[in-house]
Design a protein around this nucleic acid. Sequence first.
DNA 1: GATAACCTACCTACTGATAGGTAGAATCCA
DNA 2: TGGATTCTACCTATCAGTAGGTAGGTTATC
Lengths: 186, 186
Amino acid sequence: MTDTRSKILSVAERMARSGGYNGFSFREIATSVGIKSASVHHHFPTKENLTLEVARLYEESFFAALGEFAPPGGTPESQLRHYCDVFKNAFESSGRACLCGVLSNEAEQLPQSVREVIAGFVSANISWLEQAIKQGSADSGYDNAREKAELVYCALEGAMGVAALKQDIGWITRVSKHARHAALMD
Amino acid sequence: MTDTRSKILSVAERMARSGGYNGFSFREIATSVGIKSASVHHHFPTKENLTLEVARLYEESFFAALGEFAPPGGTPESQLRHYCDVFKNAFESSGRACLCGVLSNEAEQLPQSVREVIAGFVSANISWLEQAIKQGSADSGYDNAREKAELVYCALEGAMGVAALKQDIGWITRVSKHARHAALMD
DNA sequence: GATAACCTACCTACTGATAGGTAGAATCCA
DNA sequence: TGGATTCTACCTATCAGTAGGTAGGTTATC
């Protein structure tokens, strides 16, 4: 709502994507925003609270970019291309991996509420992809759509990690291409 | 060498795989081993030092399980299956993701030396896979071997993350199957 | 005059790291 | 052989710095 509030969320997202849950602090966020850490607590009482909000907004804007449902007009090809581009853009605009991918790798030490949001993000992605792959094929032409959706999602999350490590978007481009191909062939 | 030293390394690996670089501390390790944190510093002067050793040993034992080079006798099919099984076993025996996958997602905040070891792990994996996919095909039957290797690696790292998040090995099984299929088709 | 947004000042707990010491085993040398 | 020395593996105690979080005061806005 407030300008400060959204600045906090934006800085927190950036920091969480670069170092995970344990990789950011109220003090760092405060410094970056230009306020004191106590003021961050005014907007978000606890770290769990803040992280939850960051994760929810991330998912929201991710699916806003994606379109809540796969647009009914497109071919599976065009939809998968669109899906991969959302990931690619997420990396391109930040040089960082997917927030949910990063947090997944700390799952064991995450507050349960955060873990649940992350798990929801994964499920929503798989559903979107499954629908996109199935679309327009009443026949059994695209079998195993759900498993193929899992492949595409996992491949992209993995590629985001490597791309962030090597600071090379090529990994996303190449892995996207082959993952799409795999999802649509048989 | 010493029993204590290897206990420290073992505990550190477990903790790093469950929470990343910022997810473990000298004190936690010490408590788990049954000594004091100063004694951990006796064996490993700095955290960078300790993490470096953990990462090197992880890579070493990973490739020991894999076989330094793809065994010349096997078919690409059998070799890829073997590769996927190494990942699957790594999850099965610990319920945790790949150390290098976890650390990749903190790359930005990692000491450079550690980042380099992780990057080396990725490269070694791609080389192994590329060789396995190419093997026995002097013709152009297996084109784009390197890019397919990247797909397999990224898919598996992604699947390890989701499997750890959901505590469900099925993700690794299913993604492995489709990634292998994608790498060998065309 | 409320309410929101921010501050100073502080707390407890924990971080990686260091200083300095001790018990005991190994090594050296007359 | 036996005393002196050195090394290993740990210890206690402490450091400065940072973590998340809180109490209570100030300022600005409606």
